[in-house]
């Protein structure tokens, strides 16, 4: 246990004393998120209730009224159109179940997500009673998903996987054929399982701290609240950090590529996954979801970003448990595979 603690202390000290690691883990994400907020929404103010018209007789009218982020106007068809045209409201929930919006934006995205969620819930509990579920209930038109939330969520999904670099480094310190330091440590009575576990625990802690720090930064500085459901969000962040480190361990242990190759590989992989998840803008994500839906379903960045968005922006727990389980189980599988790769202690060449 004492040695485990000493490995933990070593990892923590290295993380805090390595300035480049601190930059890429904390400063760079803050800079990127700040740029995104400024670029896509100007200075974000506190979310005001979204004005929306709900036509009388709408099956979810009462539900809409209970949602705090909605400012529901009970108006009829023509009056609602006038309000929409004059930009007094952001959308109309029509009695036939269709959502009518004026254009694209954050508010329209939120209205669409709320409509979708209620439709899904309704399909489970009240199927066939009042709605025709073969019909498309949200008219997207030329509406694009809210740029700010999509890019921020995708970025947070990417940063949550930054534990990858810790994972690669843990293996780099343990496999004698990968680095002189590992060769030296291999000549000592070090317990590999203890070192790897300590690295994993401290890596998860550091990576989670970093992501939670970013969430607080967004909330306190830019009033973008990704902490509306703090406990589930924390659980998601922990699972994501664990999964990130597990990928790092796997890529670190499964080949003899130098660290100089594994780090850029991780950066490229994460950028690619986060781009598919919408970090470069919603069109890419929409394209992937239309053409290669399976890719984004199991794209870890997308799983994290969608879940964090749903939890905190819409207040929905859809896919939360499933995604957490997928990330956790995949992480365990990757860790076990990595340990199998790391079994070897004597090498044909160093």
């Amino acid at each position: 246990m004492r040695r485990f603690c000493s490995h933990m202390a070593l990892n923590a000290k290295m993380s805090f004393k390595d300035k480049s690691s601190l930059f890429w883990s904390f400063i760079y994400p803050i800079l990127l998120l700040t740029l995104m907020v400024i670029a896509f929404s100007g200075v974000q103010t506190e979310q005001k209730p979204i004005a929306v018209a709900v036509e009388p007789g709408h099956p979810f009218a009462d539900v809409f009224r209970q949602i705090k982020m909605l400012d529901v106007k009970d108006v009829n068809g023509d009056e609602a159109f006038t309000l929409l045209r004059d930009k007094d409201i952001d959308g109309i929930y029509r009695v036939d179940g269709v959502l009518l919006v004026r254009g694209s934006g954050v508010n329209e995205t939120i209205l669409r997500e709320i409509g979708s969620e209620l439709t899904k819930v309704s399909s489970v509990y009240a199927a066939g009673r009042s709605l025709d579920f073969t019909k498309r209930y949200v008219e997207r038109g030329d509406q694009k998903e809210g740029m700010l939330y999509v890019t921020l969520s995708a970025s947070l999904g990417m940063f949550a996987l930054y534990g990858y670099f810790s994972g690669v480094l843990i293996v780099h310190h343990m496999q004698a054929n990968l680095s002189p330091l590992a060769a030296r440590l291999s000549t000592t009575p070090i317990s590999r399982i203890s070192y790897v576990t300590a690295g994993l625990v401290s890596g998860v802690a550091m990576s989670s701290l970093q992501t939670i720090g970013l969430l607080f930064y967004l909330k306190w500085v830019w009033k973008v609240d990704y902490l509306a459901d703090p406990w589930r969000t924390l659980l998601l962040v922990l699972a994501a950090s664990f999964f990130g480190i597990a990928i790092g361990l796997f890529i670190g242990a499964s080949n003899k590529w130098p660290l100089k190759a594994k780090v850029p590989l991780g950066v490229a992989l994460m950028l690619l996954l986060s781009a598919a998840s919408g970090m470069m803008g919603p069109p890419m994500r929409l394209f992937i979801e239309n053409k290669l839906p399976w890719l984004n379903r199991y794209n870890p960045v997308n799983m994290i970003s969608r879940t964090i968005y749903r939890l905190n922006v819409i207040g929905s727990t859809t896919e939360f448990t499933e995604n957490i389980l997928i990330l956790f189980i995949a992480g365990v599988v990757l860790c076990v595979a990595s340990l199998l790769f790391m079994r070897k202690r004597q090498f044909k060449s160093l």
Partner: peptide, 30 residues
């Protein structure tokens, strides 16, 4: 492993840590 010591040709320690922290870590393995 407890009875041997090895000083490799390549510099092999934790560059970010202090001199004392490095030696303490290695000594702590034994």
């Amino acid at each position: 492993k407890r009875r041997i010591g090895f000083v490799p040709q390549d510099l092999s320690f934790f560059a970010e840590l202090s001199v004392i922290d490095n030696i303490r870590y290695f000594a702590g393995l034994y």
